[in-house]
Design a protein around this nucleic acid. Sequence first.
DNA 1: CTTCCTGTACCGACTGGTCGGTTTTTGCCT
DNA 2: AGGCAAAAACCGACCAGTCGGTACAGGAAG
Lengths: 204, 204
Amino acid sequence: MARNGEGTRAAIMDAAQALILEQGFAATSIDRVIDRAGVAKGAFFYHFPSKADLAHALVERYARQDEALLVDLLARAEELSRDPAQQVIIFVGLMREQMQSLGDPSPGCLFASYCYEAQLFDATVHEVIRGNLRLWRERLAAKLRQAAKRRPPRLPVDFDSVADLLTGIIEGAYILSRALEDRRMLSEQLLHYRNYLELLFAEH
Amino acid sequence: MARNGEGTRAAIMDAAQALILEQGFAATSIDRVIDRAGVAKGAFFYHFPSKADLAHALVERYARQDEALLVDLLARAEELSRDPAQQVIIFVGLMREQMQSLGDPSPGCLFASYCYEAQLFDATVHEVIRGNLRLWRERLAAKLRQAAKRRPPRLPVDFDSVADLLTGIIEGAYILSRALEDRRMLSEQLLHYRNYLELLFAEH
DNA sequence: CTTCCTGTACCGACTGGTCGGTTTTTGCCT
DNA sequence: AGGCAAAAACCGACCAGTCGGTACAGGAAG
């Protein structure tokens, strides 16, 4: 490995992802990516055969980080309580912590960015996104079903749908936080999801 | 007015909006817009001085339709019940009807599309979006405050934030419905918002 | 005559992508 | 230890095509 292969590759991907979240994939030219990353054009096409391959590499990396976050927070929540309902509520709290620790740049989700430029990406890219969304649904819905066994919810709900609601609220809050330039949006909106669960699984 | 000025203008805007929701603003070239609209390039630049002006005209039209929908559904909800809490719940139900009546193309919100290509638009465009989001917040929060006077919520909540939750859930559901190719997402997710309100304002 | 368009030809800037060549690191031979 | 070729990592000029936008002559409808 001459020089710093992985480092350069990561620098290109970091620059590209930041630019894509600011202005979308189509408007993010390779020239601007390599300018921001501080590398030449040859370096880009050494690491990525085409711009489409960059898109694919980015969504796969993002999906891996996303899955790792899910697994990590879920494991921590499971250690902090024995009650499944409490575990989900704690999980939401940990997500709020996570969201608040995000840096200055207006936050955004690469999945959502891709979804609003859907036609630019091939089926394999969309399959990565779909797979991750289904993973969140499955993991959370399983917990919710456990919770419902101990204490039936006060309203009849589809647990897959309640699980989807969390990711939906997060995606929606990203958009609101960008449009209204209010970074507290994420944690405020997640609080309502927590409220909803608490009311659903309230005793009596 | 020779020929059909407003008709051509609308045809261009319809074609552009459809393309933008499929692939984003940057990837939507003027050539493809006029091709889809069935007009010549001269016609485009007769109606719009630049592509940026098209973006502005589109967001303003979308905002007007959005505001009209809000006012209409709210008025209908107010006629269907005297209780403010019930009015909001009915309003959510009317929104679900509205969402289900949307046509075949995977639905999306122009505001969200613009937000994920934020840097391509000037401040006036973003101000239109912000204004509309704030309008929804104000109108809904006012209703929620009325509801809270009659029956205090079971959990302490910020009503502006609860109002934002509705738009947030809708935006999130748009993304989920696109990513998972499931058109029922919109109405399912809105049902949870309704549940949340019912639990918040439940008697006893 | 004005308004609303068509059609085509054109411009400079920028796009994704190619390519020949250069530098750096590594593994191997002596 | 020193030398050396090959592979890996990178550079930057260059290409064909597309982009937003201009220009303008002409035609159809009110």
